[in-house]
């Protein structure tokens, strides 16, 4: 059963990822991105990271991809990009070598360090609590005790991002008003 879930999720993840980089229409690329994000959410569920799976669907598939689609509509850049031409000589072979190299090095490192994967860390142990909401409880305990300063800084970051984006989007109107 777990094997079937893994195979289906892996097919979703890799198929969506290949769709993102090969579809010439940006709308199709965004929809392929949704497929990949759902596959990753399924893998989160199979790792019992239920809260993160929900956040993945809500934030990534529900907010970020919708933002992408809005920008695509707003700018009218949904015209198909001609991806058959190659503007820089030998760009694609070199890019393929670098991409395969990165994957290959990481996979080699994973396989050579397989024995270290069962070392237990010194954080909050995931295996001790058996309640249905254990994942959320442990996550909340860690965020609001050990990482509470990072959490507060994150809220400042979100505020700065929102204010900065609003200012950036309004600049033209302000300049026209000043004339």
């Amino acid at each position: 059963m777990e094997l079937i879930v893994f195979v289906l999720a892996a097919a979703m993840v890799l198929g969506g990822a290949i769709g993102v980089i090969t579809r010439s229409n940006p709308v199709h690329a965004a929809l392929s991105l949704v497929l990949t994000l759902f596959g990753v959410a399924v893998m989160f569920v199979s790792h019992e990271a239920h809260f993160l799976a929900a956040v993945q669907v809500i934030v990534y598939a529900g907010a970020i991809v919708v933002l992408f689609l809005f920008v695509i509509m707003l700018l009218g850049v949904d015209r198909t990009e001609d991806i058959s031409i190659e503007p820089i000589t030998a760009q694609r072979p070199l890019a393929a070598i670098v991409g395969l190299g990165v994957s290959g090095i990481v996979i080699a490192a994973i396989i050579s360090s397989r024995s270290a994967l069962s070392v237990t860390g010194d954080g909050i142990d995931q295996t001790t609590v058996e309640a249905a909401d254990a994942n959320i409880r442990q996550l909340a305990r860690s965020i609001f005790s050990n990482n509470v300063f990072a959490f507060e800084v994150t809220s400042v970051l979100l505020l700065v991002a929102v204010i900065g984006t609003v200012l950036m989007a309004r600049r033209i109107k302000l300049r026209e008003a000043g004339k």
Binding site: T120, G121, D125, Q126, L139, I143, N147
Partner: peptide, 11 residues
């Protein structure tokens, strides 16, 4: 985070 039984990876 799952294989090392450590919640900090999910944080």
């Amino acid at each position: 985070s799952k294989s090392m039984a450590d919640i900090n990876g999910q944080v």
